[in-house]
Amino acid sequence: MTLGFGILEIVVSLAAMLSAAAGLTWVERRLLGFWQDRAGPNRVGPFGTLQAVADGVKLLFKQDWIPPFADRGVFILAPAAGMATVLLGFAVIPVTAGWSVAGHLNVGILFFLAMTSLGVYSVVLGGWASNNKFALLGGMRAAAQMVSYEVFMGLSLLGTVMLAHSFSLVDIVMAQGRMWFIVPQFLGFVTFLLAGIAETHRLPFDLPEGENELGAGFHTEYSGMKFGMFFIAEYAGIVLIASMITTLFLGGWLGPVLPPVVWFLLKTGLTICFFILLRAALPRPRYDQLMMFGWKVLLPVCLLNVAVTGAAILLFSPTG
């Protein structure tokens, strides 16, 4: 019974994440249309709701072409690795107190950081295996950007871990019963948000895919469902980062009146809408500006946040 329930939980979670990532393409295009005073997708299905299905069918029927000059094995492996790492990251997300694929994992944050770290291999290998100069430049950009911002992402969570006295995501949510951590850890929240945008290379931090100078970046040579896997992994990454923000800083499933799962989905959905609004509102910086911002601004902010949090805990703790 327990094994069967566990398998069912995994299947439902995977189906929900893939459906959310696919449906998010329609949500983003509709919201961008609304904010930019245009229609957005409105032809396929009611209000364009079947546009994601139409795009998926089109990708399935596109020619699955592999360039003759590419490293075939690595070329095929790269998008699959990207999808796998993002989906594995969802295993530790506690939707409610009793609903998490990995259960009450006591090192949930470390597992999440490990999966985001492995995601860099996908874009680097995709750019390198394509044997294309523009794809290789995109892969190198992605490596430097993602490895750098992983440092700030990890440091931004130290204050949250210190306040909750645990690496477990369930314990962190329960520690927010009186106050969401976005209040005492606002600097950590802002840093994690910016690092999450850079990790998923979303606008305005989509430098690995800069169309105006790289064509499409690391996935220039990809087509068909291999390109689709990169595409879906990016949107699944948005859902993953939004879910982590909800869990770490917005109280997770905690809230009055409504069922816990509704609170979690509502907070995550509003965070995703904010991600999309950033794409509609902000221009893309130069690559050197992005890296300078990380090392010269975010790193000192992270260290300051850790120092202030530690001092506050020592000062106000009952045994301090």
Score class of each variant (00 low, 15 high):
residue 289 Q to L: 06
residue 47 F to Y: 12
residue 32 L to V: 13
residue 9 E to W: 00
residue 46 P to I: 07
residue 84 A to D: 03
residue 23 G to C: 11
residue 309 T to A: 09
residue 168 S to F: 11
residue 291 M to S: 05
residue 316 F to M: 14
residue 42 N to R: 15
residue 165 H to R: 13
residue 302 C to I: 13
residue 58 K to C: 12
residue 258 L to E: 10
residue 104 H to K: 12
residue 70 A to P: 06
residue 144 A to C: 12
residue 230 F to S: 05
residue 66 I to G: 04
residue 152 F to K: 00
residue 257 V to A: 11
residue 147 V to F: 07
residue 201 H to N: 14
residue 92 V to M: 07
residue 63 Q to E: 15
residue 310 G to I: 08
residue 239 V to C: 13
residue 220 T to S: 14
residue 26 W to A: 00
residue 194 L to R: 02
residue 132 N to P: 00
residue 136 L to T: 13
residue 218 F to M: 10
residue 266 L to T: 12
residue 48 G to D: 08
residue 255 G to N: 10
residue 220 T to G: 03
residue 119 G to P: 06
residue 277 L to Q: 00
residue 279 R to M: 05
residue 254 L to D: 02
residue 185 Q to L: 09
residue 121 Y to K: 02
residue 313 I to Y: 09
residue 51 Q to S: 12
residue 112 F to W: 02
residue 76 I to F: 10
residue 207 L to A: 15
residue 160 T to Q: 01
residue 76 I to A: 13
residue 115 M to D: 01
residue 122 S to D: 01
residue 269 G to R: 09
residue 74 V to D: 00
residue 95 V to C: 05
residue 131 N to H: 11
residue 51 Q to V: 05
residue 179 M to D: 02
residue 103 G to R: 14
residue 242 A to R: 04
residue 113 L to D: 01
residue 167 F to A: 05
residue 56 G to W: 13
residue 83 M to D: 05
residue 312 A to M: 15
residue 220 T to I: 14
residue 297 V to Y: 08
residue 205 F to S: 01
residue 118 L to F: 15
residue 221 E to T: 06
residue 206 D to H: 13
residue 305 N to L: 06
residue 45 G to L: 08
residue 8 L to M: 14
residue 170 V to E: 13
residue 278 L to D: 01
residue 262 V to F: 14
residue 125 L to Q: 11
residue 92 V to Q: 07
residue 34 F to C: 12
residue 202 R to D: 06
residue 285 P to G: 03
residue 187 L to W: 10
residue 134 F to E: 02
residue 179 M to P: 02
residue 292 M to G: 03
residue 223 S to D: 13
residue 10 I to M: 12
residue 26 W to H: 02
residue 109 I to G: 04
residue 69 F to C: 08
residue 302 C to L: 02
residue 200 T to L: 06
residue 185 Q to E: 09
residue 27 V to E: 01
residue 250 L to E: 05
residue 3 L to I: 08
residue 105 L to T: 06
residue 32 L to C: 07
residue 290 L to G: 00
residue 240 L to K: 03
residue 59 L to G: 08
residue 300 P to E: 04
residue 160 T to V: 15
residue 30 R to M: 04
residue 210 G to Y: 12
residue 33 G to H: 01
residue 144 A to N: 12
residue 88 L to Q: 05
residue 131 N to Q: 07
residue 233 A to V: 13
residue 174 M to T: 04
residue 77 L to H: 00
residue 86 V to C: 03
residue 216 A to L: 06
residue 59 L to F: 13
residue 58 K to F: 13
residue 24 L to K: 09
residue 39 A to S: 14
residue 194 L to F: 12
residue 281 A to R: 07
residue 206 D to E: 06
residue 247 T to L: 04
residue 21 A to N: 08
residue 264 F to Q: 06
residue 11 V to D: 06
residue 118 L to V: 11
residue 95 V to K: 07
residue 102 A to W: 01
residue 234 E to G: 10
residue 131 N to R: 04
residue 136 L to P: 01
residue 29 R to A: 10
residue 204 P to M: 08
residue 109 I to H: 05
residue 126 G to V: 00
residue 187 L to A: 14
residue 64 D to I: 03
residue 219 H to N: 10
residue 64 D to S: 10
residue 320 G to D: 09
residue 69 F to W: 03
residue 53 V to C: 07
